[in-house]
Nucleic acid binder design. Structure first.
Lengths: 240, 240
DNA sequence: CGTGTACTTGAGTGGGCTCAAGCAGGGTGG
DNA sequence: CCACCCTGCTTGAGCCCACTCAAGTACACG
């Protein structure tokens, strides 16, 4: 997979003013005026599926606000295996946990077509130290991330829970808010999340499809999705 | 198991002044003078093994700074099973993630003899809003908690990694800093962390003991421990 | 039209689960 | 002081789910 440089579409100020996410994002606490004052170099980026956003261990140079799509956060375990510890979605901030470290803790990789705003780390740190209420908001974001990760631990990952159940729970978590559509990430990625083999994931997903719990949408394009029978999946998810 | 009220040993001001942990705890950012000004009702508490610190879903009334011992943070999964998502140790803060919520997200239970400082939530919130540098410290604590939980996810919990390896990794994480002693939590608790059955944990631990990788110390008292052969355990922990 | 990637499907094996019985230690009461 | 229980741990036998290895298929892309 070639490492493609993301396209820069437009710059800072103009789109922040019209951004529908502005109220729930980091920058909600930063007035438009401040953004201008700081000459903030906020870029609006597009990433295609499998494009890296940043790489674990490299120097921190920015944080990214996800505006659409999904980004996987990958860690490496003691034996060197990759493990996905969280999936960021609309409204999440990639790199926040590393914002005050020298190097990124995770690798971040787009798992679908992604739109994101890139905030240079120097600007970000300046915003934070000069805007008290922003700090509170970041604590909240950080707490949200913690809760999400803990819920993964509790729900998705447990050898004593059957693979069927766990995959169903994962699918429900990947549901696109308010719809019956589900982010369709790769089989390999699903395996790296619930901690089972890709083959088993494939078998379970195939089974769900044949039962009509899932329907594949959009072929294998970057915008592919599942359409899920939420009720049935929920039932499977609650199986002990 | 009877629910015993913890003993109150002494109050606020006096022990904060001499606390060896003061520099690394929350209150590092709060001057002794401020503590007095706020008439802070910080209590010094003891919990015995299996004593609840607080219970998930109940109203948040305090946060607790752990001064010694270990506390398990318990979540309930979709099917109602208990899952331990983190173990707090010396220097950690129990309830921090709920500090700005109405109800506790977890149940917190002592897994050994625990000494902790109780900070009433009203005082805590006042500290936070009036001390900027404290906010930064809390973000850091929150980030530490997130990292710890993610490392659990990556290292401890994966159906594709053999139970032996995972138990070895858990034991290394429960190591008491700088020593070859290891917090000896119950078999049941270890199972609830790595996501396997108590029987399997027991078999693995017994095996480690018979090989000399582990030695049981202190019988079954509240102060029991393992003494571990760190090198051998590390080797097992790195087995794919 | 060939090539590569991602996914599917199959057969066989084994690790860990289940169920169940046995054991040790500490606390309680006679 | 001992008999008792209760809780937490240990150990065993058998089975089943999910892993492993391997081959086959579908689809996208050049």
């Amino acid at each position: 997979m070639p490492l493609r440089t993301p396209q820069i579409r437009c710059q800072g100020r103009s789109n922040c003013g019209t951004c529908e996410l502005r109220q729930e994002m980091v920058c909600a606490e930063v007035s438009l005026g401040d953004l201008v004052d700081f000459h903030a170099g906020i870029d609006d980026l597009n990433f295609e599926t499998n494009a890296p956003v940043f790489s674990g261990g490299t120097g921190v140079d920015a944080v990214y606000c996800i505006r659409s799509g999904a980004v996987k956060m990958v860690r490496t375990d003691l034996a060197g295996a990759h493990r996905i510890v969280r999936v960021l979605r609309k409204g999440d901030i990639a790199g926040l946990e590393s914002a005050f470290s020298e190097f990124y803790e995770h690798s971040a990789v787009a798992v679908s077509a992604v739109k994101a705003c890139r905030i240079p780390i120097a600007d970000f740190r300046r915003f934070v130290t000069t805007h008290q209420s922003l700090q509170m908001r970041l604590m909240q974001k950080s707490r949200d991330a913690l809760r999400e990760t803990e819920e993964w631990l509790a729900d998705l990952v447990s050898g004593t829970i059957p693979a069927r159940t766990r995959v169903a729970r994962l699918l429900l978590r990947l549901r696109i808010e308010g719809t019956e559509n589900i982010h369709r990430i790769g089989i390999e990625d699903m395996a790296a999340i619930v901690g089972i083999t890709p083959e088993t994931v494939s078998r379970v997903v195939s089974d769900f499809v044949s039962r009509g719990f899932l329907e594949k949408i959009g072929g294998n394009s970057a915008y592919r999705n599942f359409r899920g029978d939420i009720a049935s999946l929920t039932q499977v998810a609650c199986t002990a």
